[in-house]
């Protein structure tokens, strides 16, 4: 197990290096640079800026410097945020995104498993029809629409109650987190519900469930131990990538609910070609994603002993 984990970690490191390199050269290949702005710079001012940020050196030298600093854990200073270190930006804003993401993934996973099991149990009956309709909505409606509608409902709710029931935006308490995390987790929840439903239906008609019934094992035990536990496996598999997608994909929700997360720095950096922030956030998120996938694989082995043996 330990050697397996070590092997995976090494593979992960190579993946992250590959992500960093591809991003670095891709970013430099895009027309324009961090200094391109609405107003043209005089040659001398541009030159001064290039020297200040080391942009006057060949791209391959810049790449070398970047790798060297990365190895030291130094991601550099932002081009657009005066005097702010990229390390500080990540340290300050990732916890917010992570908190939001953890809550969203909890909502998504628990909701997905419960709704999925419920629809399977009541297949082709009213609860199933209603929930599956909502699931289709949840998957197909884009998050910026859900977020805007969610926020507007909060405004109306507060308006009707005549007092602030739940905050419309901002950050700081659990009350600020509820609606944004529900919005953020919604599409994943919908997807997981569908996955759980089909997985559950497959299990229900399998041989070992029939055997268990024939043996006279109590219904509650069959449902929990034989059906639910086995049906959850595919859900766990997709959970890893989902965690990364949710924690990194909060951009829209963060903008609309005015949440100080990392997602918006990530997107803004790309728009502004803020090289250091692009590299910092990409490497960080890349490492995070790779780590999550490895972690889920390890957990998977723990839940399903068959995987461990292979």
């Amino acid at each position: 197990m330990a050697s397996y984990a070590l092997k995976r970690l090494l593979q992960g490191l190579i993946t992250v290096w590959f992500i960093a390199t591809a991003t670095f050269f891709g970013m430099h290949a895009v027309p324009g640079d961090p200094l391109t702005g609405d107003k043209a710079l005089t040659e001398k001012i541009r030159e001064n800026l290039e020297v200040k940020y080391g942009l006057n050196q060949p791209v391959i030298t810049q790449y070398g410097i970047f790798l060297k600093n990365l190895a030291k854990g130094d991601l550099g200073i932002s081009f657009t945020q005066e005097n702010r270190r990229v390390n500080d930006i990540i340290a300050e804003h990732f916890p917010v995104s992570a908190t939001l993401g953890v809550l969203a993934i909890f909502f998504a996973a628990i909701g997905g498993i419960l709704w999925g099991a419920l629809t399977a149990l009541y297949r082709n009956r009213l609860p199933d029809t209603i929930i599956m309709l909502l699931v289709i909505l949840g998957i197909s409606v884009p998050s910026f629409v859900v977020a805007a509608v969610g926020q507007l409902s909060l405004v109306n709710l507060n308006d009707m109650a005549g007092t602030s029931v739940l905050p419309v935006g901002g950050w700081g308490t659990v009350w600020h987190m509820i609606v944004p995390s529900l919005v953020l987790g919604l599409s994943t929840m919908a997807y997981l519900t569908r996955l759980m439903r089909s997985s559950m239906l497959e299990i229900v008609s399998s041989d070992f469930v029939r055997t268990a019934k024939a043996k006279g094992i109590p219904a509650a035990q069959i449902f929990t131990r034989h059906q639910l536990r086995n049906a959850i496996l595919p859900v766990i598999t997709v959970l890893g990538p989902s965690i990364a997608a949710i924690t990194t994909g909060g951009f829209v929700v963060e903008i609309i609910f005015a949440i100080p997360g990392l997602g918006r720095y990530f997107v803004q950096a790309v728009q502004q070609l803020d090289y250091t922030v692009i590299m910092g956030t990409t490497v960080f998120y890349g490492a995070f994603l790779v780590f999550m996938v490895i972690l889920v694989d390890l957990i998977y082995g723990w839940i399903d002993p068959r995987v461990r043996l292979e």
Partner: peptide, 17 residues
């Protein structure tokens, strides 16, 4: 609040924030 979404700002205004 810091948000570039004008609808969000409008919602904050409606909510008397």
């Amino acid at each position: 609040y810091i948000t570039s979404d004008s609808t969000a700002s409008l919602n904050f205004f409606k909510d008397d924030k």
